[in-house]
Write a protein that binds this DNA or RNA. Structure first.
Lengths: 207, 207
DNA sequence: GTCTATAGCCGGATAGAC
DNA sequence: GTCTATCCGGCTATAGAC
């Protein structure tokens, strides 16, 4: 009786505000997005917004936290896959799919820009990145121990280079309309194979 | 007599303001940098600033234009070098040196962020990038025709991947203190060799 | 050409009724 | 919990004396 309010509803409203804000941050940038913009997009008033979040920055941070949940599933899938190469390719596909959402590219740029200024945020970003890198490094190790790859580099360094290649999905900072995402993915897989000196067959097209 | 004022002095003052602003944009970001900040850093008054530049954006654009001059020299040197591999490595070194300046990384992030919002600016960025890519593609062609490399990809696509690897100098968006720039450069050269299937010797250390 | 002073606007965040 | 109304600060850019 003390709490008549559904905590679940509270969470849902929060998520709704976050999802409205993501689009704005990605297209206009963090600084150029006003709290009024967010309120309009989410259909709430200023007062409500600041009831759910203490500041504009807090809304931005919450976006990042939401994304972590998705990655947990990806990591779990990679660990469960008995074939390390297919697990690695699944991760590559996940990166490619993320980057294909036009919003994601703009958002990531904004996240990196924030990290360059806010050390605390940078630390969180670094932690996430290390987690992702550890998963990839583990897959490289499994490939190497199975005799399927010989990067000639420490596993973690090799993982870093794999992720450098997947970063290319984000493009070079400007629209490249003539670039075919499917082909780009295939090329990344090919180059990962070369960099790791992978000995197995590289699936070039999945359809 | 009509003009008592040295146009050269006008140019020097402009450059001075630009150089003061670069630092601020790189560390605080474009939006968070106020025109008052720029004035203070450059030691001029508000009125003067807007005498030299019509807007804050114009200051930012001018930075980019200044950088172009530097690149012209790099391009000329690459064309003149009879050895395409050493010319390519010189370009890699130039990218590495740029990224080693801590300011440059922050500035580039800001430039990319701007490009995501301002189509006109993005077009300029794309043009510069194409110019750089064309130089690299030409070097790949020369390597290929000399029988020293066989990327198995079109030259321009191979050039794109070379530049993807050099992008890694900029890091992953957060400080990585344990990363040795000299070693990173050597690794990039090694990976470029693998990606291009370069047949010649890879200089691993220059000192 | 350079300054001081300030216009004019809009931002994030709060107060307090309901 | 949600709203309306509003504060307060700081911003870009301009005006006008020198």
């Amino acid at each position: 009786m003390a709490r008549t309010v559904d905590p679940e509803q509270h969470r849902r409203r929060r998520v709704h505000i976050i999802e409205s804000a993501v689009w704005l941050f990605a297209t206009k940038g963090f600084a150029a997005t006003t709290t009024a913009d967010i309120c309009r997009a989410a259909g709430v008033s200023t007062g409500s917004l600041f009831h759910y979040f203490p500041s504009k920055q807090a809304v931005f941070h919450a976006i990042w936290e939401l994304d972590q949940v998705e990655w947990d599933a990806v990591v779990a899938a990679a660990d469960a896959d008995p074939d390390p190469w297919s697990a690695l390719m699944a991760i590559v596909d996940k990166f490619a799919a993320d980057a294909a959402e036009p919003m994601m590219a703009g958002l990531l740029v904004e996240i990196i820009a924030q990290a360059h200024r806010d050390p605390g945020f940078a630390a969180g970003l670094a932690a996430t990145d290390r987690r992702q890198m550890a998963v990839v490094a583990d897959l490289v190790r499994r490939l190497r121990e199975a005799g399927l790859a010989d990067p000639g580099l420490p596993d973690d360094e090799a993982a870093r280079w794999v992720m450098t290649l997947t970063d290319s999905f984000l493009g070079r900072g400007y629209p490249e309309p003539d670039r075919d995402p499917v082909e780009a993915t295939a090329t990344v897989k090919l180059l990962i194979a070369r960099v790791l000196r992978y000995a197995g067959p590289v699936e070039v097209r999945s359809d």
